[in-house]
C-alpha cells in the first residue's frame, strides 16, 4: 500500500476526524488527540499491520509549533508510512503511543527530554538523557545555554 492508500483507508475508518496528507513528503497529519486510536488501527488492521515503529522524532518547527514524526513499517506486508502530529508550543500535549508500540517508550521520553512535548498516558514519563534536575529542553530553537549547572561553568 502506498502512503496515499493508507491515508484514504484511515480517513474512511475515522470519518469524524480530519487527517491531512502532505504529498511532497508523503505523510499523514494526525490530530494530537487522535493519534492513539489511529496508531492502534494502523497496528491491528489486517490490511495495514504496521507492526514496527522504526523511529519517533521530536521537531521544533520554529513557527510556534512542535512536531512529532512517526516512521512506521510493516514487516508483514512490506510497506511503510509516516505520520506527523503538530502541537502548539505553549500547550505541547499529545497522546502517547507507548502502549501501542513498546519502542515508543524511550523515543517519547527522548522527545520530551530534548524538545519538550508531553505525552499523555505514558507510564514512565521522565527525562532519559539529561539529568533529572536539568532546566529546559535543549533542542528548542529558542534554548539558551545556562551559565552554570550545579556549580560547574557551562560555556567555554
Amino acid at each position: 500500500m502506498t502512503a496515499s492508500d493508507i491515508h484514504n483507508r484511515l480517513q474512511t475508518l475515522f470519518p469524524e476526524i480530519t487527517l491531512g496528507f502532505d504529498e511532497q513528503v508523503p505523510c499523514i497529519i494526525v490530530p494530537a488527540d487522535a493519534i492513539r486510536d489511529v496508531a492502534l488501527q494502523l497496528r491491528d488492521d489486517p490490511a495495514l499491520l504496521m507492526d514496527t515503529l522504526m523511529c519517533l522524532s521530536g521537531v521544533d518547527n520554529n513557527d510556534g509549533t512542535l512536531g512529532v514524526v512517526y516512521h512506521l513499517d510493516s514487516v508483514a506486508l512490506k510497506h511503510k508510512c509516516t505520520l506527523k502530529v503538530i502541537v502548539p508550543v505553549d500547550n505541547p500535549l499529545l497522546q502517547s503511543v507507548e502502549r501501542v508500540w513498546r519502542s515508543a517508550d524511550w523515543h517519547e521520553r527522548e522527545a520530551f527530554d530534548l524538545v519538550g512535548m508531553r505525552f499523555e498516558g505514558h507510564r514512565d514519563h521522565r527525562r532519559i538523557l539529561l539529568p533529572d534536575d536539568w532546566e529546559g529542553h535543549p533542542l528548542r530553537k529558542n534554548y539558551e545555554v545556562p551559565e552554570f549547572y550545579n556549580g560547574m561553568k557551562v560555556p567555554y
Binding site: L130, Y143, M152, K153, V154, P155, Y156
Partner: peptide, 17 residues
C-alpha cells in the same frame, strides 16, 4: 571540550573544571 566547545550545551569544557 573538543568539538563540543561551542555548541555542546551538555559537555563540560575540560575535566580540569
Amino acid at each position: 571540550g573538543g568539538p563540543y566547545w561551542e555548541h555542546g550545551y551538555h559537555v563540560l569544557k575540560g575535566v580540569d573544571r
